[in-house]
Design a protein around this nucleic acid. Structure first.
Length: 555
RNA sequence: UGCCCGAUAGUAUAAUGGUAGUACGACUGUUUUUGGUGCAGUUUGUCUAGGUUCGAAUCCUGGUCGGGCAACCA
């Protein structure tokens, strides 16, 4: 794809490793989601990184569900995650689950206990936290810490056998209660949870914690490069401690900065709130930064992969401009979307010298960016048309290239018309624009010699069909809702969704296919929503076209 | 204020001791039957103070600023 691009720091590490013959030049990464929510664009960055880097170096990528917390996880999420990864265009090598390793992880824990490197703790969560000290004060051992290996073995077995209620005991690694790194102050390895697990059912009542399970799962799979986000940097010494003490395969952890994007939120917790409290219609609401939301909105896998490539990989905090994502989707859709004409805010245009009741079929290319226009469709033309309300101005400004008294425009794929007069309704709004057309100016066979600056889209009033159009804007009013005072939900953009219940669409659009992108000429890119019914299409606006006139007209 | 991570145009990201470049954005111009696209161009940057060096964005030291860490979450 981008042979010229310089290497990011992870690629440099990998090329170094390959050069040094580390792991025999083998590269195996993994994408390790916890199935407790839907994937978002930040995960897409990680997916593209993990799968992309493996592919680049002839390696493979495992999909491993980090399912060690039965109370938050569900198969619904497993299914959606798999669907999203496939949709993005990636193929994993093995589909694995941390829960597949529960027996092996238990054995590892037993081994650590035998070596005096882990112990069963009797204290409550509060007592443990208190005894851990603070970042500036060392922790103190709890009474449980000095227990013998034999006793620990027995107690751990009993924990597993369900002899104790939730919270009664935990297993801790015996490391260093005075470590300046809080994660090394005898971290928890196992807790008791009498909970049904979506894969192991009621087989287990003790579940391993992330720090223990994740690294050993990497090790079991012989992952060579375990790539995660920056908040795990302080966990790395612990990651290495477990692997070293157990003498397991030396997977290495590397960290990069997670994606942040302005005007949205990216944490699962916040996204879950938006869903649960009905600020959005669901995980796949087109305003959500989830993969499923972007998909429904009309984003393409390619655009998201290109975006991931363009934002780069580094270790510094970042806040990516939404405009880059929009650039990426426009770039793709401009090349591939079929052009159609749709009037969102209609105004009647009457051509006084065109025979009433006559219909003419105009030819419109599907896509001017493609060879031979990617085919054509017919567009009925008649004496009464709908045009966009803002394509007429009663008192046009100097730089306004559209319709106004005495002004001429081209009707896209049809004739040039001149505005002769207009009619206002009782409340003073323009209700009709009256024009005359230039018969010899028909598109393709124009011999009029007239050059006009503006071209506008239109739909025949007689042949027009109706559709619901949903316009989306940024979900939040502020760049970084999470960093504002108070609740992030206070900053939701009240105009993030505008529904146009009756827009006029050209008849061919009744054949719109879901999964195909359409450019409504001069209005933006749209795709068919899953709420559509036969004869009652619903379109989502994926993104607007760049609009330099909107800026100009505001000056 | 214990430990850790980071700081290059508005936003990202390169330059790996030797000419600070690229993309997005913004702004010009040009092309155009989409005020879209394309094309051409302009604009703006190495957090700070020292040090090492012929030469520092890069190495060292201090400072400043930002982020992370004390869940029976991952």
């Amino acid at each position: 794809m981008s042979e010229e691009r310089s290497l990011n720091f992870l690629e440099e590490i990998i090329e170094d490793d390959i050069r040094n013959g580390k792991n025999g030049g083998r590269v195996l990464t993994r994408f390790p989601p916890e199935p407790n929510g839907y994937l978002h664009i930040g995960h897409a960055k990680s997916i593209c990184l993990n799968f992309g880097i493996a592919a680049k170096y002839n390696g493979k990528t495992n999909l491993r569900f980090d399912d060690t917390n039965p109370t938050t996880e569900d198969v619904e999420y497993v299914d959606s995650i798999k669907k999203d990864i496939q949709w993005l265009g990636f193929v994993w090598d093995k589909e694995l689950y941390s829960s597949d390793y529960f027996a092996q992880l238990y054995d590892f824990a037993v081994e650590l206990i035998k070596h005096g490197l882990a112990y069963v703790e009797d204290g409550s969560a509060e007592e443990i936290a208190f005894a851990k000290g603070t970042p500036t004060e060392p922790g103190k051992p709890t009474p449980s810490r000095s227990r013998s290996a034999e006793e620990n073995l027995q107690l751990f077995k009993e924990m597993k056998e369900g002899k104790y209620p939730d919270g009664a005991r935990v297993l801790r690694a015996k490391i260093d209660l005075a470590s300046p790194n809080m994660h090394l102050r005898d971290p928890l390895m196992y807790r008791i949870k009498h909970a049904y697990h979506h894969r192991t059912g009621d087989q287990w009542c003790i579940y391993p914690m992330y720090d223990f399970a994740h690294g050993q799962s990497d090790s079991i799979e012989e992952i060579t490069h375990s790539i995660c986000t920056l908040e795990f940097v302080p966990h790395r010494p612990l990651y290495e401690w477990f692997i070293q003490k157990l003498n397991n395969f030396p997977s290495k952890q590397y960290e990069f900065a997670r994606l942040n994007m302005n005007y949205t939120v990216m944490s699962k917790r916040k996204l879950l709130q938006l869903v649960n409290e009905n600020y959005v219609s669901g995980w796949d609401d087109p305003r959500m930064p989830t993969i499923s939301g972007l998909r429904r909105r009309g984003y393409t896998p390619l655009s998201i992969r290109n975006f991931s490539e363009r934002i780069g990989i580094a270790r510094r905090e970042n806040l990516i401009d939404l405009s880059l994502l929009e650039f990426c989707i426009r770039e793709d859709l401009n090349k591939n979307a079929w052009r159609r004409m749709v009037v969102l805010d209609p105004l009647k245009l009457i051509i006084s010298n065109y025979p009433e009741g006559q219909t003419e079929l105009m030819e419109g290319e599907n896509n001017p960016e493609m060879e031979k226009g990617d085919g054509f469709r017919n567009i009925p033309f008649s004496s009464e048309l709908w045009i966009e309300r803002d394509d007429f101005m009663e008192e046009p400004s100097k730089k306004y290239f559209r319709l106004g008294p005495g002004l001429m425009v081209r009707l896209k794929h049809a004739y040039i018309v001149r505005c002769d007069s207009f009619v206002k309704d009782a409340s003073g709004n323009v209700s009709e624009v009256h024009c005359t057309y230039i018969p010899e100016s028909r598109s393709g066979t124009d011999s009029s010699g007239i050059h006009v600056k503006g071209t506008i889209h239109w739909v025949s009033a007689q042949a027009a069909q109706k559709a619901e159009i949903r316009l989306y804007d940024r979900l939040f009013r502020v760049e970084d809702p999470g960093s504002e005072d108070g609740d992030f939900k206070d900053y939701i953009n009240p105009d993030s969704l505008t529904v146009i219940s009756k827009a006029f669409i050209e008849p061919d659009l009744l054949n719109a296919e879901s999964g195909r992108a359409y450019q409504f000429i001069r209005k933006g890119y749209f795709s068919l929503d899953s709420d559509s019914k036969p004869g009652k299409p619903v379109f989502n606006r994926t993104v607007t076209l760049k609009d330099t006139w909107a800026k100009e007209s505001q000056k």
